[in-house]
């Protein structure tokens, strides 16, 4: 187990990268997911249809393929544009990190968007009619009644999706982003310890999963919902 101490810097850096990946994509992805869900339930067809197509495409293709398309496809288009290459954002765009965040956001937005849509549809009609009856505008009904009710309802599913997102971050090492798994793989290649680094990685992922579940569990308990 000497390798843990010998390569602790590398492993901690990888761990932090995994945390960054999950937090960025969770927050941005969640906001996008609400947008997707609102478009999905919208009665305006030019909003509903693209959102529908987006969800189908993202949910219907493997995440790894999406990551490759974003990183090798989009990434090499950027690389061939002198404006971007000479600009200050190039140092960010040459790195795999933001491509990974982008791919994860897309994926999370599609999956959670669908979940939130289910929640929106599931809000009892009576409540919406009551809100309308006391004079709320459609916008206010959505913001104050329908969306909050939907989000409460989907919280347990959201916890599950967040855990899935955490596990998806492990794909980052396929595009040379040194996340927790990437760091472990580096350690494995240097020390030829085949299994131990992987077991350490698995344990850390389990702990992170438990933390995420705890977080959502608390959130659920704090929200007063009469079922």
């Amino acid at each position: 187990m000497n390798w843990v101490f010998e390569y602790s810097d590398l492993l901690i850096k990888g761990f932090l990268t995994t945390l960054e990946l999950i937090s960025f994509s969770l927050v941005i992805g969640f906001v996008c997911a609400i947008g997707v869900a609102l478009c999905r339930v919208s009665e305006t067809r030019w909003l509903a249809w693209p959102a529908n197509a987006f969800t189908s495409v993202i949910r219907g293709t493997p995440l790894l393929v999406q990551i490759y398309i974003v990183y090798f496809g989009l990434g090499s288009i950027f690389a061939h544009m002198p404006i971007i290459r000479s600009s200050f954002i190039w140092p960010y765009l040459r790195d795999g990190f933001w491509y990974m965040v982008f791919a994860l956001v897309l994926s999370f937005a599609a999956y959670v968007g669908e979940v939130v849509r289910g929640g929106l549809v599931g809000v009892p009609k009576g409540e919406l009619e009551a809100a309308k009856a006391i004079g709320m505008s459609p916008y206010k009904v959505m913001l104050r009644i329908r969306l909050p009710r939907a989000l409460y309802q989907v919280l347990p599913t959201l916890a599950g999706e967040s855990v899935m997102l955490l596990k998806s971050t492990a794909l980052a090492s396929t595009i040379a982003v040194v996340d927790l798994l990437g760091a472990a793989n580096e350690v494995r290649s240097m020390t030829f310890e085949v299994y131990q680094p992987l077991i350490l990685v698995a344990i850390i992922y389990i702990v992170l999963t438990l933390i995420i579940e705890q977080f959502f569990g608390r959130l659920e308990r704090r929200i007063p919902v009469r079922r």
């Binding site: 090798f72 090499s76 690389a79 061939h80 040379a176 040194v178 793989n185 580096e186």
Partner: peptide, 18 residues
């Protein structure tokens, strides 16, 4: 130092200017 799993990926990232 960017570390890759295969030489193939290095080649394509060098060609892409990354």
């Amino acid at each position: 130092i960017r570390q890759y799993a295969t030489q193939d990926e290095i080649n394509s990232d060098l060609l892409a200017g990354r």
